[in-house]
Design a protein around this nucleic acid. Structure first.
Length: 274
DNA sequence: GGACAGGTGCGGT
DNA sequence: ACCGCACCTGTC
């Protein structure tokens, strides 16, 4: 590896494995027990954990510093969330190393369209194949494809890459994004941006919330998937319909909703594995 | 073999 | 507005 060491960071509130494996990113690879490769846009980094220090190797230091959200004080967030309730104390303690990544908005839109009714392993495979088929070559693998290249591709290409019935959603959304002003979307408040996103093909409530949280850094949304439904029914009051669970958690957690969702998601999944 | 996997679109009420 | 159902594909 001839990548330069970009920076190091204390591992107390930066657990690389938990951050990458909590469902917010699909373009990463575990290289060994303590080493991960991460792809974003046309950029690449390798991240190594050595005891109390995380080492990030990359050409673009500034990009990955922001990518891993390293200016944010997660210790303060963990303290605040832990004080909410016993279950949140446990969940935050379990997921305190998770950081919400600053990812590319376009990449999040296509990635989470693919994620619908799908599992992580297959999502990763499909995205990797799409990058290899349409992405520009870089020093380390291929970049995420442009909107134009996806829009210009036949639907059958995405079917052949394993996208299944989501194939047409990818092309339809790419065509909609051509001539669409995503910076105007970024300027909207979360409820308005959510409404816009729901008009995209293949984007429903859950995918829209993931795009808001991971692509637009909106902390005030709460994506609800099957795991969070389990969390709701296991640990929180009942009596809400499934379609009301997101609103329930948003009202409960406010600006911290997104991070609470990550903690609870990770908590429930770890619980499930044991 | 059937259910499930980090849901959505559709048609019918 | 609110259900109920079909749906690509891989895996258990």
């Amino acid at each position: 590896m001839d990548l330069p060491l970009a920076f190091t960071y204390d591992s107390d509130y930066f657990n690389v494995r938990d951050t990458l494996e909590c469902g917010q990113i699909f373009r990463y690879k575990k290289l060994s027990d303590d080493r991960y490769a991460v792809f974003s846009r046309d950029k690449y980094a390798e991240v190594v954990t050595k005891d109390k220090t995380v080492e990030v190797y990359a050409r673009d230091k500034q990009y990955f510093w922001r990518f891993f959200d390293l200016d944010c004080d997660y210790a303060a967030k963990v303290r605040r969330i832990s004080a909410l309730s016993p279950i949140m104390q446990r969940a935050a303690s379990c997921g305190k190393g998770i950081r919400i990544l600053n990812q590319d908005l376009t990449e999040m839109i296509f990635s989470f369209i693919i994620s619908a009714n799908n599992n992580i392993k297959r999502i990763q495979l499909i995205i990797e194949r799409i990058c290899n088929a349409l992405g520009e070559p870089t020093e380390n693998g291929r970049a995420f494809p442009t909107v134009d290249s996806i829009a210009a591709s036949p639907v059958e290409l995405f079917a052949s890459l394993g996208a299944g019935y989501r194939d047409k959603y990818l092309v339809a959304t790419a065509r909609k994004l051509q001539g669409y002003d995503l910076s105007a979307l970024s300027a909207l408040d979360s409820p308005s941006a959510r409404k816009e996103l729901l008009a995209f093909a293949g984007v429903g409530p859950k995918v829209a919330d993931c795009i808001l949280l991971f692509g637009l850094k909106r902390g005030d949304v709460f994506p609800v998937d099957t795991w969070l439904k389990k969390v709701y029914h296991n640990y929180f009051e009942q009596g809400h319909k499934d379609s009301e669970i997101s609103t329930f958690f948003c009202n409960l957690f406010g600006e911290d909703a997104g991070l609470c969702q990550q903690y609870l998601f990770y908590f429930e999944r770890i619980h499930h594995k044991e």
